[in-house]
Design a protein around this nucleic acid. Structure first.
Length: 456
RNA sequence: GGCGCGGUGGCAGAGUGGUGAUGCAACGGACUGCAAAUCCGUGAACCCGGGUUCGAUUCCCGGCCGUGCCUCCA
């Protein structure tokens, strides 16, 4: 079975055909580094992390790029408010972002280009657009002239008339057409800026992705991804810049967009105060459970995010890690065909997870050690492709939220005390010890090999 | 107003032109000193109205409801 992906450009699922099977190129719009990443970001990056994993499974070489936007109005604003230097804000936030994504269990992208290290490429691209008549300078700005591009709006399926009619914002006086967008803007005194043919300034938001993909991937590449909200204007404008600068028919062959999430039924927003940062969730739940919760719905579907969902995901992982617990490692086997097939069908994670559940069930129902071994190995291989069940099972069961009370020595001591009580048939005392542990979030399981524990 | 997405059991969530996944929850049973974990079993759904069809939850049309985007936004 071949890989098929839903392409926003054609609004259809298509069989994926790499431009160069020896190097599949995937670009995802990364964070603007001025604040903590939130669950919405985590969802998008989890979805594309999975795509990168799948591509790497299917092709010998995949280059996964995810940029860091480190020059932007919001960064400047944040710096002005707090007094913290811009470099400090971006460096600190980037480090935090990396720590959060690592803890969620995401692979680092192969390259992570930063906007500020690609200014010359952006200036050159803007110059090319000016030279070709797609852009013009006005009052220190350089603007892309949308009417100059005949088929602008293909990705978002918007006509230029609609754009003009629907313009909600006041149109800047220097724009020739209301839909024109900024490629370069002048730097005010005290703002970061770079010298350019149009004076000291900084790039507009969209140009960085166009310049960086061209620098690292060439004029046309395989897959470009991001959140649903980036379709317009960000990706539409990237396409306009890249295609007009290079004279190509497309910028990327496949455009993929992940769906939005709501928080307990409401749109995530700061005014509703229902904004979860990745960090605060990671203090409370294991990253692997958070990521599983984010992947339980198909990536293009809306996802209603609740802490209860993370709790369920944790329970699921308890069950799966329970299969691996006590086994002396399992040998690597190929990924089960049905799991691979589910993922190759536009990343159908819910279907893939249902197969993992079946494998866990097969393990427990197995009549003999060989069958158990096969089920466990298959589960491990399938989960491995998805980036799950990679840690030591005992470490998983011992994971504790930030500031959790009981330490492991105290738990072990209580278990020993209970064992003695049971031996003496003092079940009242044994049950009291168990109840005390449960009250502190520790669940005991008595098995043939003795008593094991986990955090609820 | 324009463009788009969705309505599946108590909840989550796939999928399919014809015996309606999977998980959680519930209920009964096994196992256990009692639990937990696990196993066995039970009940439980395709928004409404037309159309196409031998047959539609699945395709088409209409309606209702919800929701996203329309130049900050993953």
């Amino acid at each position: 079975m071949a890989l098929s992906l839903y392409n926003t450009l054609t609004r259809a699922k298509e069989e994926f055909a790499p431009i160069d099977p020896a190097n599949v190129r995937l670009y995802v719009c990364g964070p603007t580094v001025y604040d903590y990443a939130h669950v919405g970001n985590a969802r998008t990056f989890s979805a594309f992390d999975l795509l990168a994993r799948l591509l790497k499974h299917l092709y010998p070489k995949v280059t996964y790029a995810r940029n860091i936007t480190d020059v932007d109005d919001k960064i400047i604003e944040r710096s002005n408010q707090s007094g913290e230097g811009i470099d400090s804000v971006t460096t600190r936030t980037t480090a935090q972002f990396h720590a959060d994504m690592d803890e969620l269990g995401l692979l680092r992208p192969d390259i992570e280009p930063r906007a500020t290290t690609h200014i010359p490429q952006m200036v050159a691209m803007i110059q090319a657009l000016v030279d070709k008549g797609f852009a013009y300078a006005a009052e220190g700005h350089v603007l892309f002239h949308v009417p100059a591009m005949a088929d602008y709006g293909r990705l978002s399926r918007r006509s230029q008339d609609e754009l003009i009619a629907g313009a909600r914002v006041e149109v800047a006086p220097y724009k020739q057409s209301p839909a024109d967008f900024v490629l370069w803007k002048p730097a005010k005194p005290g703002e970061p800026g770079w010298d350019s043919p149009w004076g000291k300034g900084r790039p507009g938001w969209h140009i960085e992705c166009s310049a960086m993909t061209a620098a690292h991937f060439g004029e046309v590449f395989d897959i470009h991804g991001g959140g649903l909200d980036l379709i317009f204007p960000h990706h539409e404008n990237e396409i306009a810049q890249s295609r007009c600068a290079h004279g190509t028919a497309v910028m990327a062959n496949v455009w993929m967009h992940s769906g939005f999430l709501t928080i307990a039924g409401d749109k995530m927003s700061k005014s509703l105060n229902n904004f979860y940062t990745a960090r605060e969730l990671l203090d409370e739940y294991p990253g692997e459970a958070i990521r599983l919760a984010l992947l339980t719905a198909h990536y293009r579907q809306p996802l209603d995010f609740t802490k209860e969902k993370i709790g369920q995901a944790k329970q699921t992982l308890d069950r799966w890690y329970g299969v691996l617990r006590g086994l002396d490692g399992v040998e690597a086997v190929p990924v089960p065909a049905e799991v691979l097939a589910a993922l190759q069908d536009d990343l159908n994670t819910p279907l893939a997870f249902s197969h993992l559940h079946e494998l866990a069930g097969a393990f427990h129902r197995a009549a003999n050690a060989d069958e158990k071994w096969v089920a466990a190995a298959n589960l491990k291989a399938a989960a491995g492709l998805l980036g799950f069940l990679g840690q030591d099972p005992e470490a998983w069961f011992r994971w504790a939220p930030k500031g959790a009370g009981l330490d492991e020595a105290a738990i072990e001591a209580a278990i020993q005390a209970r064992k003695d009580a049971r031996k003496a048939k003092d079940f009242a005392r044994a049950d009291r010890i168990r109840a005390d542990l449960l009250a502190q979030g520790i669940v005991l399981e008595d098995g043939p090999q003795g008593t094991s524990w986990k955090r609820a």
